[in-house]
Computed example of a mutant assay.
Amino acid sequence: MDRRGQVAQLEIRKVLTLGLRAALLLAVAYAGLCLLLYFTQRSYIYFPPPTTATDLATALMLDADGVDIHVSVHARQADDAVLYFGGNAEDVDASLPELAAAFPGRALYLMHYRGYGASGGKPSERALVADAQMLFDHMRSNHRRITVVGRSLGSGIAIQIAAKHPVERLVLVTPYSSVLEIAARQFPYVPVNWLLSDKYESWRHAVKVNAPTTLIAAEHDEVIPRASTDQLLAHFKPGLAALKVVRGTGHNTIGIDGQYVAMLREN
């Protein structure tokens, strides 16, 4: 091989070496991104609001294996009750006026997730569903009929309770088919299915629900795509669930519209 050929061969080797190094760096960066998302994933799901003053004299405190679970309670002595699970950044006490207006004469139980309000611990799907189950069991011994309401993130907890128990009615506000699906849309180039621990796959539980169900969507929901809500609706038994839309509202403004309270109330 002449000198010109040797020089060309060396240049090719340099290019290949640089290409391999670049590919390796990209692979390491991608793996690092995946690891970062894995270890910080719950910070993208749960956003505890600032702690506000709590009247613990009227609250119910449950013991979940040494972890305090704070439940706000209104009209505890009523025969029938409503169990409410809020959004991922919601102070559920703020929803009390709407719930009281929608369900007059009923006891109201609003669960503060782990790390929210006066509840201890850290939130995860498994822990929150277990806490919800414990609260439901407590309520069932004191109330004849229980309506379960879940908003946004809480819809994924409410549907799991309704799938296991004979509740009077299920109401899902701005619900999704699964958090996994929402996360996959936000991170399309990441293997979310492998990384995500709290998938909240509501569609898996919908078919097991036997209670009359109302899904309430915001017309201009900027967080939960309508397609996700429609997909969830399709998994209920035929004729069991109905979708209602609050016109002119978004994901976080749906509760301030007068239509919202009326839809909560309607069977």
Rank of each mutant, 00 (worst) to 15 (best):
E98N: 12
H74Q: 10
A100H: 02
M134A: 15
V173S: 05
A57Q: 15
T147N: 03
Q77T: 15
Q133A: 13
S152D: 09
M139I: 11
V82F: 03
V92L: 03
R144G: 10
P175M: 02
Y84W: 01
F85T: 04
G86C: 04
Y176G: 06
L62Q: 11
D79K: 09
Q133C: 14
A163W: 11
D91L: 11
H165I: 13
A118D: 12
A183M: 12
S178E: 06
L62F: 14
I146L: 14
R76S: 12
E181H: 10
L153C: 01
A57M: 14
L56D: 14
H70V: 08
V171Y: 06
I159C: 03
Y176S: 05
R140K: 14
V92G: 00
D68Y: 15
A59L: 13
L56A: 14
A163L: 10
G121A: 05
I157D: 07
K164D: 15
A101E: 12
A183V: 12
V129Y: 01
A162Q: 07
I159R: 00
H70F: 12
S72C: 13
K164P: 08
D68S: 15
L135S: 05
L83D: 02
L108F: 00
P104A: 00
I146H: 09
L60E: 07
Y109N: 01
Y109D: 05
E181C: 09
H165F: 11
E90G: 06
D79S: 08
Y113P: 07
L96P: 01
I161C: 02
Q77C: 05
P97A: 00
R114Y: 01
A59P: 03
F85L: 03
S119P: 10
A118C: 13
A59W: 08
D65I: 01
H138W: 15
A158H: 01
V173E: 09
V171G: 02
I182W: 09
H74S: 10
E90H: 07
S177C: 09
D137N: 14
L128Y: 05
D63N: 07
E168C: 07
N88F: 08
R140P: 13
D80V: 04
G86W: 02
P175R: 00
I69E: 14
V67L: 14
G120L: 03
E125M: 06
E168Y: 08
F85S: 00
V129R: 08
V167A: 10
L110K: 04
A94D: 13
A64F: 13
G154W: 05
V173Y: 04
A132D: 11
A132P: 06
S152C: 02
H112Q: 05
S155E: 05
Y116W: 08
R126G: 10
N142G: 15
R126M: 13
A100Y: 02
D68L: 14
V149D: 01
D91R: 04
H112P: 13
P123M: 06
D93Q: 06
S152P: 04
P123H: 06
A130R: 03
S119C: 00
I69G: 03
R145V: 12
V149G: 04
V171Q: 06
P104G: 05
K122F: 12
A107F: 00
Y176C: 02
